[in-house]
Design a protein around this nucleic acid. Structure first.
Length: 811
RNA sequence: GCCCAGAUGGCGGAAUGGUUUACGCGUAGCACUUAAAAUGCUAUGAGCUUCGGCUCAUGUGGGUUCGACUCCCACUCUGGGCACCA
């Protein structure tokens, strides 16, 4: 009989998916385990082998946990709103929902063809009105709690997609999706106050078990910096210009101020700035400089003085000039800085424009100190203060707190914490997203749609294309837009913007707790039972987007009591991440390179189990790894060997070998531990070693050992394990069995290879009893011919003995 | 520029203070075959060798240690993230 995976796999998948064996049981008394894999965006390209890698890994964990007696929730669904589907629909002239249906059907078929043990009864779809009813409900709660507001802001505008982009969607000044240069455009947008949660989003990372690099990336993205606000009086104009600084210890060297070109001070005092035309011209120029060009490191600093404007340094009482320069950002801090010789950009600008400079921080290195004082080089580090009145001689750190309290007493300075994180632009001018459930009334302002009227369904339109003006296509459907104001019943209009991609994935982990066959009945009890997620796996690319957003939304829902408080303020207990699968030669897989591996083809040619085993074996799970078509063959050979051994040497109990049993138990130990640590590659290799040992042995496996082997194989190659389990006439389904335990006694070896070193170099290897101590080991070593030769008659100076490992003789 | 991760045979990798190169791929030889494929077995880091072995090798240079792929310092390169953040 030949191993025929196509036949075997279909058979077992039918059996599994027609039953409820992979269904999670709400409220079961067994210990729950919620294992979450990021749900896919169902693109028209179908499943990627990268999806298979992470889903196989999690499927292995889910199957093992189930065998260990946990009540496992391992769900799947579709994050289906978004631009690619919309663009596809526009191109093909079909409704995006039709494209979505087609794509999800493909994904579902592909995922099932790989035998994943998802709970398909809880499948979710973010584009289902029953689902987005809750997405809209969450938005309304944000709105009602004052966390959603509309504001005219300069947004990142992609002229090709005709869409406003969140900062997170701009990569190196280009649109993340299409690569077009992003422009600045003023537009009314809905924003969400994620910044109010900045501190908690940092602090609560202490409560969770995330990979350290994920925590670091989140913290860096939020970008907390502690400093102070300092007032620079501007007599006769405004009262003062306020600046943010983390280096108030350098204030005595401040010789000028710099404002961001867009700073409102300039607008307020146009008539007082003598060279206002020049200043406005500079502002226009900097506005049109795309961020991409700013990344040019060699770009020289530029700036313009606001002539006729002076400010007073609150520390020295000196009058200093005020400049504007585009390296000062309007949206960070107060949009204004004080400038001095201890900042590289300030230093460069001053040198270039002939602005006077003065130093006040002395570096520890005397040679550098000389060059700093003569303004030959710019010193940005910390040191000892001079030129700083009563603060002379203090270190930078000491001086900072003293200067703040000194200026603070005069009302000129205070402590201040700043974050790089900005509020989240939440509206999109596109069709294929959740409508924002708000109504604008010219009398009453923005009003929430009544909760009983949710969902606000997407209306049918003829054209999905964004309009020339950049407005959403919904803006053209008059009978949908025009509604009554929920408050005064007068004429009002619906918001026509839709929500961004992230809206649906902000809360989907909650949906799985209560979703059933396409119905979404929010259920506190079920949420309480399943949440938080025990183990969440996804890509590193979502660390600063989805992961941060969803943590924020969860915290918000927790705050307003949308589910029981006892769950705690964090949605995910543990977060791990997988490495990408690259094309051969370590380049990214892409259609244009023609190196995309289609999982369907691999399944057809080699079988699902082969694909699963190969993707686990190819390398460490968290690392990027190139696809190797030849490597797939190795996985297939491994499975074939197992199939042959089970059929050829079918359970010859009388010939069972104790040596094989020992290796079996070592393998159980290794595989059990490795799965928990996501070291799937070494788990597979240890099973390969076992099979090799069995193959060359003239003994066979006992019935118990065969059972155990199939059980540990089954998470990796579930179809083959099931087939062989059935073929051996074992009871029930293999995937329903109890995970095997290893016997410690069987793992202990009676003998070992004693490594004998002389001066740390291996000179002999002697087989010895496992229990021997130093004395016996020494005798054994010194009686070896080779060792005697190497000793050259010398006496050992020192002997190091490591139990069960080696003996090192130092001469 | 800053932060994080990494560098081991022809290739993917294993080993986290104690036999470097497990497992897999590839390659070579042998067996089976009319032949090929498939399969099985054997060999496979480099150099030297009197065929007993010896020497060298985990990016580079130092250090700690009886002993370093592993720990420490400096550097080079590769990948990822952030970046005019005051």
């Amino acid at each position: 009989m030949k191993y025929n995976p196509n036949k075997i796999e279909k058979k077992w998948q039918d059996k599994w998916y027609k039953s409820d064996i992979f269904y999670a049981k709400n409220g079961s008394k067994s210990k729950k385990f919620y294992l979450l894999a990021e749900f896919p965006y169902p693109s028209g390209d179908g499943l990627h082998v990268g999806h298979c890698r992470s889903y196989t890994a999690l499927d292995i964990i889910a199957r093992k946990k189930r065998m260990e007696g946990y009540n496992v929730l391992f769900p799947i669904g579709w994050d289906a709103f978004g631009l690619p589907t919309e663009n596809y629909a526009i191109k093909k002239g079909i409704h995006p929902s039709v494209a979505t249906k087609k794509n999800t059907d493909t994904f579902r078929r592909q995922l099932k063809s790989l035998g994943y043990s998802f709970d398909w009864s809880r499948e979710i779809n973010t584009t289902d009105p029953e689902y987005y009813k809750w997405t809209q409900w969450i938005f309304l709660q944000l709105f009602k709690n004052g966390l959603a507001y509309k504001s005219k802001i300069a947004i990142n505008w992609c002229s090709s997609c005709r869409i406003g982009l969140a900062n997170e969607e701009v990569v190196l000044g280009k649109c993340e999706r299409c690569g077009t240069k992003v422009e600045k455009k003023e537009k009314e947008q809905w924003l969400i106050k994620i910044t109010e949660y900045a501190e908690r989003l940092i602090k609560d990372l202490d409560l969770v078990d995330y990979l350290e690099k994920i925590k670091i990336q989140q913290k860096e993205w939020i970008g907390k910096s502690e400093g102070s606000l300092v007032k620079f009086p501007t007599e006769g104009i405004d009262n003062f210009i306020e600046v943010f600084t983390t280096r108030i210890d350098t204030i005595f060297s401040c010789t000028f101020l710099i404002l961001a070109p867009e700073h409102k001070f300039i607008d307020r005092h146009k008539n007082k700035i003598q060279n206002i035309e020049e200043v406005l011209e500079y502002r226009e120029k900097s506005k049109n400089t795309p961020d991409a060009e700013r990344t040019n490191e060699e770009r020289a600093v530029s700036g313009v003085e606001l002539k006729g404007i002076k400010a007073k340094n609150p520390a020295t009482g000196e009058e200093v000039p005020v400049w504007t320069a585009d390296f000062v950002l309007g949206h960070y801090g107060t949009g204004a800085v004080f400038a001095d010789a201890h900042d590289k950009r300030d230093f460069d600008l001053a040198k270039k424009q002939g602005i006077p400079l003065r130093t006040s921080i002395e570096p520890a290195d005397k040679n550098i100190a000389v060059k700093v004082k003569t303004l030959e080089i710019c010193f940005e580090g910390e040191g000892i203060l001079y030129n700083s009145m009563q603060f002379n001689g203090l270190s930078s750190a000491q001086a900072r707190s003293k200067i703040i309290s000194w200026l603070g007493e005069k009302g000129m300075a205070q402590n201040k914490t700043n974050y790089k994180l900005r509020d989240w632009v939440f509206s999109r001018q596109h069709y294929w997203g959740e409508p924002i459930p708000l109504i604008f009334c010219s009398k009453c302002g923005w009003q929430a749609v009544a909760e009983k009227d949710l969902p606000v369904k997407l209306p049918k339109v003829k054209k999905y294309k964004p309009t020339e003006t950049g407005e959403s296509p919904l803006a053209e459907i008059k009978n949908w837009i025009n509604v009554k104001c929920p408050k005064c019943k007068g004429k009002a209009k619906r918001e026509t913007d839709t929500m961004p991609n992230w809206a649906g994935s902000n809360w989907y982990y909650l949906a799985y707790a209560f979703a059933k066959n396409g119905k979404y009945n929010w259920d506190d009890k079920k949420i309480k039972y399943w949440m938080p997620v025990d183990w969440y796996n996804g890509g590193m690319e979502h660390t600063t987007l989805h992961l941060l957003y969803s943590r924020f939304i969860f915290k918000f829902l927790w705050d307003i009591g949308a589910f029981p408080k006892s769950i705690g303020p964090e949605p995910y207990k543990k977060r791990a991440s997988h490495g990408m699968v690259l094309g051969e030669g370590s380049v990214k897989m892409s259609k244009s390179k023609g190196n995309v591996i289609n999982p369907d083809k691999v399944v057809k040619e080699y079988g699902a189990d082969t694909l699963r085993v190969y993707e686990m074996f190819m390398g460490p799970f968290d690392q990027m790894i190139p696809w190797d078509a030849k490597g797939v063959v190795g996985a297939r050979r491994f499975l074939e060997k197992i199939y042959k051994l089970f059929n050829r040497k079918k359970l010859n109990k009388s010939n069972a070998g104790i040596e094989l049993k020992k290796i079996m138990h070592k393998t159980i130990k290794k595989v059990s531990e490795d799965i928990g640590e996501m070291k799937f590659n070494t788990a597979v290799s240890s099973m390969m070693e076992f099979v090799n040992a069995w193959n060359i042995s003239d003994k066979d496996l006992s019935e118990k050992d065969s059972e155990d082997f199939l059980k540990i194989l089954s998470p990796f190659a579930p179809h083959l394990a099931e087939e062989l389990w059935f073929g051996a006439k074992f009871k029930g389904l293999c995937c329903n069995q109890k995970w095997p335990k290893y016997n410690t006694k069987l793992i202990e070896e009676e003998k070992f290879l004693l490594i004998v070193q002389i001066n740390g170099k291996v000179r002999d290897k002697i087989e010895a009893k496992a229990g021997i101590l130093e004395k016996e080991a020494k005798n054994l070593a010194l009686s070896s011919e080779k060792i005697v030769k190497w000793m050259e008659g010398k006496e050992p100076k020192k002997i190091i003995f490591i139990y069960k490992k080696l003996i090192n003789i130092v001469i």
